[in-house]
Computed example of a mutant assay.
Amino acid sequence: MTFNEQELVSGCKQRNRLAQKQLYDVFGGKLFAICMRYIKNRTDAEDVLQDAFIKIYENIHSFRNDSPLEYWLRSVTVNTALNHLRQQKNWKDLSDIELHENGLADKEFTLADFQLQQLMGFIHELPVGCQTIFNLYAIEGYQHNEIAQKLGISEGTSKSQYSRARSLLQQKLNKEKRFDDGSVQRTQF
């Protein structure tokens, strides 16, 4: 589907329902994938996506065309997902942990032998704090000082949660390395 970004934004600013539908049709799938990275329950992720689009439609006038529209939409969606997580009781469990738990956080490992869906499943199994910070840092590209500010935590907490997430993921990857032929090999990194 082709679209003109400026016309689409202009139509949404005028609250044109067809423009709003086209915005959803063009970006809804990508933004839902973002919601699913942060929210473990599909139904809740759908609710977060709906909330994100409400915010997008209500605040589209603040989009200034100084960055790609998709970047602004992603930012609104991530913030909406984070707000949802803050409202959950288990969000309060973020705390500083030892930075290099089991010495695994500094080791490099390869993801080439794993399918995206399998990796996303591993990420979804992480504790909420680790999963959130891993997504913000490794996938969204935020720096630890930005994450700390966004989440109201210390930069050290962000770093330690990321380190813990890497360690937990590495342990999962070490336990299972699958190949295209279905065979499994346990590996050490």
Rank of each mutant, 00 (worst) to 15 (best):
T2Y: 15
F3M: 01
N4E: 12
E5N: 03
R15I: 05
L18N: 15
G28R: 04
A33Q: 14
I34R: 03
C35E: 10
M36Q: 14
R42G: 13
V48S: 09
D51N: 08
F53G: 04
N59Y: 05
N65H: 13
Y71H: 15
S75W: 07
V76H: 05
V76L: 00
T77E: 01
T80V: 05
A81N: 06
H84P: 11
N90M: 15
N90C: 12
W91T: 04
D93Y: 08
L94T: 03
I97L: 11
H100R: 07
E101I: 08
G103M: 03
D106Q: 02
K107E: 06
E108T: 11
E108D: 14
F114N: 10
Q117I: 14
Q118E: 12
L119K: 03
L119P: 00
E125Q: 06
C130M: 14
Q131Y: 02
I133M: 01
I133V: 05
F134Y: 10
F134K: 00
N135Q: 08
G141S: 04
N145Y: 11
E146L: 06
L151R: 03
S160K: 00
R166T: 09
Q171I: 02
Q171E: 06
L173C: 02
N174W: 07
K175F: 02
F179G: 07
D180T: 08
F189H: 00
F189V: 08
F189K: 04
